[in-house]
Design a protein around this nucleic acid. Structure first.
Lengths: 213, 213
DNA sequence: AGGGGCAGACTAACCAGTCGGTATGTCCCA
DNA sequence: TGGGACATACCGACTGGTTAGTCTGCCCCT
């Protein structure tokens, strides 16, 4: 049972398929995860039935429960993908060789772009987090905190070296910025006037200006 | 049927009770709404059963469906309360007789304080909005937009008169600020180090600094 | 004597997860 | 070369439990 999940996680990251000759047909596990993601984002976790997912993916429950242990596993998998992606990117920007204000600006802008590019996942993330079982919730929270702390460290560094104002708690600034990121799912529209990169530049600009001493 | 709802809405705003001699026992409709609010905030709308609400409120389903047309009506009522409250306060601050930067600062800080003071309601608002039927969703969206536009007008006024920077779209700034407000439910703790007013001052300060030309 | 304010049993729908079964493929030894 | 042994991938009917909402009727106040 646990073996399957490991393999599925691997499959989700890799393009290779088991039964596709040319590349048009995605492997079942991937298709299920993609379908579930879309439906969770559109209707919410609770309003989406397992039956609906398998119907839309063109398989049956047998297939879903062959690859995933439970409906909640699907949700957790979505979270895992988002968290891993964002943590990895944050680390890259934060460790770069540049002045702290540049590193913060890049990191702040990047998380906006990747959030918009994965808007379904992040919608689910913020909207359905409380649907996780205590055990998985704890795990997600821990990874989330790691991310938060890495980001906060950047701000604290700037505050120590005097390039950022120090009369606002660094923690609050992190939540300030992630509030606006979190909120993207509510208002950003692909057919709107601003590209993801433009939104990112604006939001990062606002953050940096807010932090000027 | 529709008559009841009107009366209930009235009851929700007024302290008067039907069956309480001294003031300890709230009228049933109020108790149901308060209980539902608490439970929705704790567990989410879908995870809260009608049975749970009536049990906790010490009545039965008969009572609930006597006062409310459906479970969704309860949710809609919560939204209505929050929206009316915030719109009224925003109008008051925006129409005040003061420089625009002061009016914006006051309005921005006030919405933070009232959000924290009604954290249950606002948690529900942002987390469960997509559970509304299309009809009610439309209504809520319309009221929400009115609020958004009033706030945006303040920013545009400051941009026109040159006290705020004009190289960021006013719409985006509104969503920027409301992102952080929205996010409060995720991180603010009553037993944390900051009072609602302190958080409000910080967040309003960040907004105003971000808007400096 | 009439109606508002509830109680509580009931229903029809739905849903996550299970389970026995089938089809296809792979490996291994004769 | 062929055929048993075993695993993977999936099907789809079924179950036990939950849920929103209804309905009938009692009680009490006016």
């Amino acid at each position: 049972m646990r073996n399957f999940k490991e393999r599925v996680r691997a499959m989700a990251g890799i393009k290779d398929g088991t039964s596709n000759g040319n590349g048009t047909t995605k492997p079942v596990a991937q298709r299920l995860l993609a379908t579930a993601t879309r439906l969770f984002a559109e209707q919410g976790y609770d309003r989406t039935s397992v039956q609906e997912i398998v119907d839309r993916a063109g398989v049956t429950k047998g297939a879903l429960y062959h690859y995933f242990g439970s409906k909640e596993d699907l949700l957790h998998e979505v979270y895992g993908r988002v968290l891993r992606l964002q943590q990895e990117r944050l680390d890259r920007f934060a460790d770069a060789d540049a002045p702290v204000e540049q590193r913060l600006r890049d990191a702040a802008a990047d998380v906006v772009v990747t959030t918009i590019e994965n808007l379904d996942d992040t919608k689910i993330f913020f909207r359905s987090m409380h649907h996780l079982s205590p055990e998985k919730d704890k795990q997600v929270r821990a990874e989330r905190r790691r991310y938060h702390e890495r980001f906060r460290a950047l701000i604290e560094e700037g505050q120590r070296t005097g390039v950022f104002t120090a009369d606002v708690p660094a923690d609050l600034v992190v939540d300030y910025h992630f509030g606006s990121v979190h909120h993207l799912g509510t208002w950003y529209r692909e057919d709107g006037p601003l590209s993801p990169q433009q939104v990112a530049d604006h939001l990062a600009g606002l953050l940096l200006r807010a932090l000027r001493p």
